[in-house]
Amino acid sequence: MSRRVLVVDDSASVRRLIVGTLRMAGFDPVEAGDGEEALAKARETMPSAVITDQNMPRLTGIEFIRAFRQMPGSAGVPVIFLSTENADAVKQQARAAGAIGWMTKPFDDQKLLGVVKKVLG
């Protein structure tokens, strides 16, 4: 199984933290600064999992998930929503769009790693 994880966040420091954590655990992280860039990277090579922020320019996390789920081959790819937003309505929108998990920022890197390992089996 591929260990490619697409990390989507407009904050370079958050991406660096997630990418570093994933890389040290043997994953192959790929970075995108917004939803449109993430879609382009997913078209190049479909990831095994996605971690996405909500509040980003060009496409929000929910908009990205909706577009990602329209791509061939994305149906079985787990999407983890990582956001400062904690409202139930946003969580429901994310799940309806196709996210399977939710974590709130700030996050514990080991907990994030545990979630990624769990969703990838």
Rank of each mutant, 00 (worst) to 15 (best):
G61F: 01
F68R: 00
A38Y: 00
W102R: 08
D28I: 08
G20S: 14
A96Q: 12
T60F: 02
M24R: 08
K118M: 14
A99V: 09
F64A: 00
E85W: 02
A67R: 09
S13W: 06
L82P: 00
K117W: 12
V50L: 04
P57A: 04
R23E: 15
V19P: 00
R66E: 10
R16G: 08
R23C: 11
S2Y: 12
R3Y: 08
A87Y: 13
A32D: 00
P106F: 04
Q70V: 14
A75I: 13
S13E: 12
R15L: 11
D109L: 09
S48H: 14
I62L: 02
L59Y: 08
G20Y: 11
M24I: 06
E37I: 10
A87L: 09
R23P: 07
V14T: 14
I80H: 02
E44A: 07
T84D: 03
P78L: 07
I18T: 06
I51F: 03
R43W: 10
I62R: 00
M46I: 10
A89T: 14
R66G: 13
V30Y: 02
Q93E: 15
N86M: 13
A96K: 05
E37N: 06
R43G: 07
V116G: 01
I100K: 15
F64I: 04
D109F: 03
A12G: 08
T104C: 10
K41Q: 14
L113I: 10
P29A: 07
I100C: 15
I18G: 00
R43P: 05
G61V: 05
V8G: 03
V30D: 03
G33V: 12
F107A: 09
L59I: 10
G35D: 01
I65W: 01
G121F: 10
G20E: 09
M24G: 03
A87G: 12
A89W: 15
Q70W: 11
F81Y: 11
L113W: 09
D53Q: 04
K117P: 14
M103G: 05
R58D: 06
L22V: 08
T52D: 05
L6A: 07
D109R: 06
V77F: 02
G98T: 02
T45Y: 12
V30A: 09
F64G: 01
S74V: 00
D34H: 14
A97Y: 06
I51G: 01
V77G: 00
V90E: 03
L120W: 07
A99D: 12
E37A: 10
S83L: 01
V50E: 03
L113D: 03
V50W: 00
E63M: 07
T84W: 07
E44W: 12
A38K: 00
S83I: 05
R4F: 09
K117H: 12
L6I: 13
V90N: 11
D28W: 08
A12H: 13
K118N: 11
R15V: 10
L120N: 04
A87M: 11
R66M: 11
Q54N: 13
D28F: 07
I65K: 00
V116D: 00
L22P: 04
K118C: 07
P57R: 03
P78Q: 03
M46C: 12
A12D: 01
E36I: 10
